[in-house]
């Protein structure tokens, strides 16, 4: 009677975990329930990790940044009022964690090297991290660190130059230069 079955029911989803009731889980986590925080983590970690990995292009550091973002989220949950989606709020925390680390390194480099824009001296990264399989992903990972940060934030995350410049403690003109360079390098890499 049923000679052929439906197409294989494989589900391709950026979210490996669907949440039963995110609002309720957030409420319970805000009350200190760690058990409610775990499904929130499982649901959102692929997206958080993705943005961290693209920004830092290093698996270990991306893992650290992801952990930092979730720990920060746990500490700040009482401030989450549901005015934006929980995913948006979490995403912002992850970007902030990476940028905070960047600012710290930036200040240290500036102090040691005595240049205002130490990132301008950097060279492209040699080997992209595993897990980035697509050509474009690998090309992004090979970009110089600052150019990569600006490209990901501007062209993938939708930040403005003003926001990026403020977060990275750079001049807007510098972030524009980084973006221009990143796009050029990517186009060359993808030819």
């Amino acid at each position: 009677m049923h000679a052929v079955d439906p197409a294989e029911p494989r589900v391709d989803s950026p979210f490996p975990v669907l949440l039963h009731d995110e609002t309720e889980l957030v409420r319970r986590a805000q009350a200190g329930d760690v058990a409610a925080f775990e499904p929130l983590y499982r649901h959102h970690v692929p997206r958080v990790y993705a943005v961290c990995l693209r920004l830092v292009a290093d698996v270990r550091r991306a893992e650290e940044m992801t952990q930092t973002a979730f720990v920060q989220a746990w500490k700040s949950l009482h401030r989450f009022r549901g005015e934006s989606a929980f995913s948006t709020w979490l995403h912002r925390l992850a970007v902030n964690a990476v940028l905070m680390e960047f600012r710290s390194l930036h200040r240290r480099e500036a102090h040691v090297m005595g240049v205002a824009e130490p990132g301008t001296l950097e060279t492209p990264t040699d080997s992209p991290p595993p897990g980035l399989r697509l050509d474009l992903e690998r090309a992004i990972a090979r970009l110089p660190a600052q150019a990569r940060l600006v490209f990901v934030l501007h062209d993938m995350e939708g930040y403005t130059h003003e926001e990026i410049a403020k977060q990275m403690e750079l001049q807007p003109g510098t972030t524009k230069a980084h973006l221009h360079r990143a796009r050029q390098l990517l186009q060359e890499a993808l030819r």
């Binding site: 950026p14 970690v45 692929p46 993705a50 698996v59 992801t66 992903e137």
Partner: peptide, 17 residues
């Protein structure tokens, strides 16, 4: 066409917890 999500290679939850 880039994926919006990439699962970590290992479970980060125990360290976060």
């Amino acid at each position: 066409h880039l994926p919006s999500a990439i699962p970590p290679e290992r479970d980060l939850w125990p360290e976060i917890r």
